[in-house]
Write a protein that binds this DNA or RNA. Structure first.
Lengths: 106, 106
DNA sequence: TAGTTATATAGCAATTTTGCTAATTGTCAA
DNA sequence: TTGACAATTAGCAAAATTGCTATATAACTA
């Protein structure tokens, strides 16, 4: 399992949270990605950077932090690095947060 | 509802997370608090500071951030400020995180 | 009133975070 | 091989975070 410290830090930033939202429904914003299917393969770093209007190196670091947290997987294919969510890690984190803090949800 | 940015930031620190854990079971660590019942009234700032071995002003700021996030309530009684969890806010946050990121837990 | 205790606020320093540009690496196409 | 594009890495600056001490405020006690 991933480092919890990395995970809480990874979610302490609005851009990274939004990346995770975007990667849940890639077709809504990245249907025009032609090099690979956004759903099957993932979304490349440059596209994410463009979406937020931030530089590609800055997005690359956000991705690195999300990878370290285990929340996304990134696979290199030819020139591109395709990012996709790791649903297992996200579910594990949500479960950990709830039980670790003993949060009683409705 | 509380500011989500304040909430994610509030949880991005191990001390603050641990404060929330401690306040869930106050008797385990603060049974010796004599000025008020830890469960009924809450735990005072100085006790929390001592528990972590950090200064009182530093703990005071951690508490301020947790209050801003809505995760704890603090009531002044005589000399003391007693802190207790806001279970509703914590549950709301956990639900928001899950649904906002569309996390499918087991 | 003077001293003690609990808290909050102000101000500072060290560290971390977050953005950028520049430079490097890797892949592909002429 | 050269040029392009995508990504990463390095290095820098601005901002935010986190700790501290000193000080102020509030409540109590002798």
């Amino acid at each position: 399992m991933s480092n919890r410290e990395d995970q809480v830090k990874a979610l302490a930033n609005e851009t990274r949270i939004e990346v995770l939202r975007l990667l849940d429904r890639p077709m809504e914003h990245f249907a025009h990605q032609e090099s690979a299917d956004p759903v099957e393969t993932g979304v490349c770093v440059q596209m994410l950077a463009e979406h937020f209007g931030i530089s590609q190196p800055t997005m690359s670091r956000h991705i690195e932090l999300l990878k370290r947290a285990g929340f996304i997987r990134a696979q290199r294919k030819q020139k591109w690095t395709y990012c996709s969510r790791d649903e297992t890690a996200l579910a594990d984190y949500a479960n950990w947060l709830k039980s670790s803090l003993n949060i009683r949800t409705a």
